[in-house]
């Protein structure tokens, strides 16, 4: 600035006001998000148990964590859950979006029904599926009372299959949303290009395989990022649906962290597991957000 001497008070205030207005939000985020992250990372290196304590133990919590079979089960479950959840949601979402994009009568109504689960709490979803899948009163019982006496469906009570019921409920809740994302992507594709391809003699199958689906890459990317971050954060659904059981059959890192921190009084280990969750999400989200914000410029 060459000569600020002429700037009056109001002009100077106007220069600072925007930053002043932004600062409370920024301060909150810096303290409650980044400050807390640092604090949690610090705790993961301490001997905190019931309450935070500040005895430095180095990597002990992490090495303990990786020796815990409970943690190993959580990670394995996470892997199974994430792969199936993301995969099924994407395929189902894309398929339904393509079907809905065929000048369907009542499209608005169908879309509304596909999407409403997204408005529900995972606790509600969990409750509904919990009792529907319960062999005592739910599907199994219904089928048997309808005369199919040999019918068995006890996945939710079965250690080997319970995780798939979590996948089922989670897919039910979010696949409609993924469908909407793909539908928006489909609607963004230039129709003239499709007409040109049709004149080139492309069949519908080829049209989708060679032209349309490759152009949905941004929608696939968004869907992957959103779904993977939802998968890692999945907590309420498991609590409501299975409570992590039977046994530890549906424990996920989020429930692991919660029970180690708040019910087993192993805060140091809980913090270490939270740090690992954060790192995983950061590895996915940061490049994505970076790319999104860069494009905007």
């Amino acid at each position: 600035m060459a000569s600020n001497a002429h700037a009056d008070f109001r002009s100077r205030l106007q220069v600072w006001l925007p930053k002043l207005v932004l600062s409370p939000s920024l301060a909150m985020v810096l303290v409650f998000v980044y400050g807390f992250i640092i604090f949690s990372v610090y705790l993961s290196f301490t001997d905190s148990r019931l309450l935070p304590s500040y005895g430095w133990v180095g990597w002990e919590n992490y090495s303990k964590l990786w020796r815990l079979s409970h943690w190993e089960i959580s990670l394995t479950n996470m892997g199974v859950f994430a792969v199936l959840y993301i995969g099924i949601c994407s395929i189902l979402g894309l398929g339904l979006a393509i079907f809905l994009d065929q000048k369907i009568r009542g499209e608005g109504f169908i879309r509304t029904i596909y999407l409403y689960p997204m408005a529900l709490s995972f606790i509600v979803t969990g409750t509904a599926w919990k009792w529907f899948l319960d062999p005592g009163i739910g599907l199994e019982n219904v089928m048997q009372s309808w005369g199919w006496t040999g019918f068995e469906f006890d996945w939710i009570k079965n250690r080997d299959f319970a995780i798939y019921t979590v996948v089922l409920a989670a897919v039910w809740q979010t696949s409609g949303f993924v469908m909407a994302m793909f539908l928006a992507g489909l609607r963004g594709i230039d129709n003239e290009m499709l007409k040109a391809a049709q004149m080139d003699g492309a069949s519908n199958w080829n049209l989708y395989r060679r032209i349309i689906i490759p152009q949905l890459r941004p929608a696939f990317l968004s869907a992957f990022v959103i779904l993977s971050h939802l998968a890692i954060k999945t907590f309420d659904l498991v609590i409501a649906l299975t409570g992590g059981g039977p046994g530890r059959a549906t424990e996920l890192p989020a429930t692991f962290m919660y029970s180690y921190t708040f019910t087993r009084n192993q805060m140091g280990i809980g913090a270490a597991s939270a740090v690992i969750m954060l790192m995983t999400i950061a590895a996915i989200m940061i490049p994505y957000l970076y790319a999104e914000l860069r494009e905007k410029k």
Binding site: F36, I37, A254, A274, I281
Partner: peptide, 11 residues
């Protein structure tokens, strides 16, 4: 987008 587990204890 952070997993809120990371802020539970300090919060």
């Amino acid at each position: 987008f952070i997993p809120f587990q990371i802020v539970l204890i300090p919060m």
